[in-house]
Amino acid sequence: MDITLVLIAIFSLVGFIFTFLAVIEKDLPKAVVFSAIQSAAYAALFYLLRAPDIVLVYLPVSVGLYPAALFFLIGKSERVEE
């Protein structure tokens, strides 16, 4: 069996679990961290699917800039979702 396919399966499963956790989490900063972990798993998937161009833009935007923007916004509103 191709090791790439196994890694794709593992990373997509990790991505899926953390998407689920981000959706059910009520504490918003925690949810943003879960979402960033999901993005890191997706970046690995893009690399395995041979799209390095997407990896280079996806990593800084989804792990760095997007959570940072969300943290700034959470800081200006409420921390816990009701």
Binding site: D53, L56, L65
Partner: peptide, 21 residues
Amino acid sequence: TPGGGFQAGAALAVISVLLAV
């Protein structure tokens, strides 16, 4: 090589987040 203007811009923009945080 893989990459380009938008990728490089996003990579440099991480500095702005680091500075702010």
